[in-house]
Amino acid sequence: MPLTPLDIHNKEFSRSFRGYDEDQVNEFLDQVIKDYEALIRENKDLQNQTLGLQERLDHFTHIEESLSKTIIVAQEAADEVRSNSKKEAQLILKEAEKNADRIINESLTRSRKVALEIEELKKQASIYRTRFRTLLEAQLELLNTEGWQSMQFDNSEE
């Protein structure tokens, strides 16, 4: 069992003839008690300090672990966001290509329809021109007939 300052203080020595000077021994023991008490206090302070430092170390270790986990979670979230963004970009691109194909097909269909309408209008214009020519030729022929030629007016009678 370790020696305490009280043990040192209460220690009694037997007296003998021609022994040590009692006052010197007591002074020395008092000094030993003071030094021993100081060492015990210092030891307790160091133990308390060690406990405090250990608690801080544990705290910082916990923070480090939390930060590591947080970084891992953040990295996983970033990877997931990146992956989702790529998928979404691919879907948008496919949708855009589909829309572009649809627009092109609609444009081609309209273009063909307009071309057919133009052809129909050309045919109708040709038919109208032919009919108009036929009408004009019939009217010219009518003008060239004898009935019209006999209806000439004499300008000299005026």
Rank of each mutant, 00 (worst) to 15 (best):
V73C: 09
T134S: 13
K122V: 08
L140N: 05
E37D: 03
E27W: 03
F60Y: 10
R129Q: 02
K86R: 14
S66L: 15
M151Q: 13
E146P: 00
A138K: 05
K87E: 15
E146W: 06
F60D: 04
A38G: 13
A96K: 05
E65F: 05
G19L: 02
I72D: 12
E141G: 09
F13N: 10
F132Y: 06
E117N: 02
A38L: 12
Q75Y: 11
K87C: 13
M1V: 13
E27D: 12
T70E: 09
P5W: 00
K94V: 15
S14W: 05
V114G: 05
R110S: 08
A115R: 00
E117H: 05
E76H: 11
V81H: 14
P2Q: 13
H9N: 14
E22L: 08
R102C: 02
L53C: 07
E120P: 00
M151F: 12
A38V: 08
I104Q: 03
F132Q: 01
A38S: 15
A74D: 05
G147C: 07
Q31A: 07
Q24T: 01
Q149V: 10
L6G: 04
E146G: 06
E76K: 04
Q124C: 02
F132L: 02
D79P: 01
Y128I: 06
D7Q: 09
Q149G: 08
G19M: 08
D79R: 09
M151H: 10
G19Q: 03
L140V: 13
A38P: 00
S83V: 08
L91I: 15
R102V: 15
E157C: 08
R41I: 11
L3T: 12
K87Q: 15
R102I: 07
Q139N: 10
